Simulated scan of single mutants.
Amino acid sequence: MLLEVPEVTESQISPLAGYTIGVTAARRADELGALMERRGATVLHGAAIRIIPLADDSDLLAATTNLLEGGPVDFAVATTGIGFRGWIEAADGWGLGQRLLDVLRKADVLARGPKAKGAVRAAGLVEKWSPESEASAELLDYLLDVGVEGKRVAVQLHGEPLREFVEALRSAGAEVVEIPVYRWTGPVDPGPLERLIDAVLAGQVDAITFTSAPAAASVLETADRLGRLEPLLEALRERVLVVGVGSITAGPLTSLGVPVVCPERARIGALVRELAVTLPQRAVRLSIEGRDLELRGQAVVFDGELRPVPPAPMALLRALAATPGRVLSRPALAGVLRRHSGREAGVDEHAVETAVGRLRAALGDPSLVQTVVKRGYRLAVPLA
């Protein structure tokens, strides 16, 4: 019989053990992967973007020069700590650091959150105001309430354009200077990302994480270039858990009907905690003759022991677990293998027998998968 999903506790096997998770991040990818591995996950890296070094970014230099030469600045918006700090350091490297700080001291500096506030103060500046919500929307409301008509506003970006924010200020009569800190482009080597997409389509990835909207857009663009966009969207909509660090990051995916889980706080630590709670809740749990069997992404937990299961046998196990105790015919299970492998040739009843043998070996108890003569196979679960 099917069991209710129990609450995951620290005393159990690591919450992400048996799951394979894709990481598309470029910056802090190793840190993100390590947090997942610490919780038992297997991690596949496929960086979807490349960060252009600040010192080499001609667009940032041009925007900074424009800011300095275009007249006084009335408001300066710091959206992220690392972005604001990087901007000041890059300006210093170009010999413009002191001029930039002098201009910003005469402006009302607004900091979106604590990290941005810390970077502002580290630069020797004092913020005029910072929203408790850490939301750009509240920053915008503050500026519109104060009034920006005829004012010059510098908005420090962080890889993602703030189109609605900027357009609202311009519509209110402000001159907005966008400071594009940390611009992103496609990866130098697309191979790891292409292999990650292949793994998703092959059913070898249980969850995929995104920490920026450009990374999400890059994954979709890469899949489209490979002619695999629709199969990828189907996998992300129906089978793979998609986790984004925030709603802006999720935008390119949700606009195409892909459900995205986001933590309450837009932090990578919160993202991993959300993943460690949500992914185990999707596990299938069965009781077979008083023994617990839990189907995780690429493994099972049987009698409290984690047992890896190869992809094809796992596909059969999931099919059998979908109707526990009922017989599935060999032709039906051959169809499961064909859908799993994406090919028709070489997938017959003999392939089913081979996969069942491998499944029994992986489970460590052949009696769990029973042969029903001339009919097929079933899990050893009593029918209700």
Rank of each mutant, 00 (worst) to 15 (best):
T249R: 01
I268T: 14
S247L: 14
E264Y: 07
V243K: 04
G244C: 04
V240P: 00
G257Q: 15
I248K: 11
A270F: 08
P252R: 03
V240L: 02
V242L: 07
L271W: 05
S247D: 14
L253T: 08
V242H: 04
A270E: 15
V242P: 03
S247T: 15
P259G: 03
L271Y: 04
L253F: 08
I248C: 05
P259F: 02
I248L: 13
V261C: 06
V258I: 00
E238P: 06
A250T: 12
V261H: 12
V258A: 00
G251R: 14
G246T: 08
V258R: 00
C262A: 14
A250F: 10
L256V: 14
P259K: 02
G257T: 14
P263A: 10
V240R: 01
S247M: 13
V240F: 02
E264M: 09
E238V: 08
A270K: 10
A250R: 07
G251T: 12
G269D: 15
G257D: 15
P259C: 03
V272H: 00
G246W: 03
A270G: 10
V243S: 06
G244L: 02
R237F: 08
A266I: 09
V260N: 02
A250G: 11
A270S: 15
V258Q: 00
V260L: 05
A266Y: 12
V240M: 01
R267T: 14
A250S: 15
T254R: 11
V258S: 00
V240I: 06
G257Y: 10
R265K: 13
P252E: 01
G246P: 07
G251L: 12
V242W: 06
G244W: 01
P252W: 01
V243R: 04
L256M: 14
V242I: 08
R267W: 05
A266Q: 13
E238S: 15
I248P: 02
V260K: 01
G244I: 02
A266M: 10
G269N: 14
R237P: 11
A266D: 11
P259S: 03
L271G: 05
G257I: 13
V272M: 01
S247N: 13
L253G: 05
G269I: 10
G246Y: 06
L241G: 03
L256F: 12
V272W: 01
V261M: 07
T249C: 05
V245T: 08
R267P: 03
V261G: 02
V243C: 09
R237H: 12
P263W: 08
E238T: 15
L271Q: 07
G251D: 09
V243F: 04
T249Y: 03
L253Q: 06
R237V: 10
V242T: 10
R239Y: 12
T254L: 05
V272C: 01
S247F: 09
S255P: 11
G244R: 01
V240T: 02
L253R: 06
V245D: 06
R239M: 12
L271S: 04
A266G: 11
V242S: 06
V261R: 11
L241S: 03
V258W: 00
T254S: 12
G257P: 11
G251C: 08
L253E: 07
V245I: 15
I268G: 08
V260A: 05
R267S: 11
G251I: 06
S247W: 10
T254K: 06
T254Y: 03
R267F: 11
I268P: 09
P252N: 07
I268R: 14
